[in-house]
Design a protein around this nucleic acid. Structure first.
Lengths: 129, 129
DNA sequence: CACAAAACCGAGCGTCAATCGGTTTTTTAC
DNA sequence: GTAAAAAACCGATTGACGCTCGGTTTTGTG
């Protein structure tokens, strides 16, 4: 799922937890980059059709919000990379870890180990039943 | 770094450790998908200009080979995603782990833990000096 | 130097995001 | 209920970029 520059920015805007209609989004982006309301509208529509935004009629306008959070979306993108280049999940993850290794803080490493631990426990649970 | 379909396939061809000239690559891909030698040539050239293939004149033709292996490249792509969506390395990695968690074998989890351990030791080493 | 092989150039096509003018549909206000 | 306003929707244009390939130039070899 490759997004254009404006799409990326709009998505990140919604990841702040906001719900907004085209008008609000437009007034937010107008200052920093210009563009008409129509441009924002078609971008919202594209993101909606791609399943990245949810929307709902509220009075006269659609109110949009993120359909998944940043973490879930990034996970999907990384999954897509694995598929594109025929890498299994394990090696994709190892590639990621190797690349980032030096940049990780102790805290982040701990968080990762906690996830691993949790996953191990889930495994044990499974074999109990 | 978004690649086209042919580019992806050619790159994977080189990840098998091969060194090859345009002619060889073409004869490899001709069966499964057709296309002229010229198409392969321009694809090799594009990949070369993107820094994904290395090349060297050998007699009258360039011999190409992968400039980095699959793991390094996938690492770079994932890094790019983090940049595109303003995610720090730690959260990118956690997103990857969360997404793949259930799909990982025990072996792959162990491999990951070994990497974490290695990274911890590197840290300790550092603080010794 | 001539011939062959490969590199290189350039153009056309398809896809897709960004952009925006114009039209249709929907809401709301009277 | 109808008119005005607001928003959605449609369609066309532009700009990237990958794929494709014909044609020209360069290069290596005998």
């Amino acid at each position: 799922m490759q997004l254009g520059e404006l799409e990326k920015q709009v998505l990140q805007y919604f990841w702040k937890g906001r719900t907004a209609d085209a008008k609000s989004v437009h007034s937010h982006f107008e200052k920093r980059r210009g563009g008409t309301l129509n441009t924002i509208q078609s971008t919202l529509d594209r993101l909606y059709k791609k399943g990245l935004l949810r929307r709902e009629k509220q009075g006269h306008a659609f109110h949009y919000q993120a359909a998944m959070d940043r973490q879930a979306f990034i996970g999907k993108l990384i999954e897509g990379i694995g598929e594109d280049y025929s890498a299994d999940p394990g090696s994709t993850l190892i590639a990621a870890f190797s690349t980032f290794s030096e940049k990780l803080s102790d805290k982040q490493i701990e968080a990762l180990e906690k996830l691993i631990e949790a996953r191990r426990e889930a495994d044990a649970e499974q074999s109990d039943q």
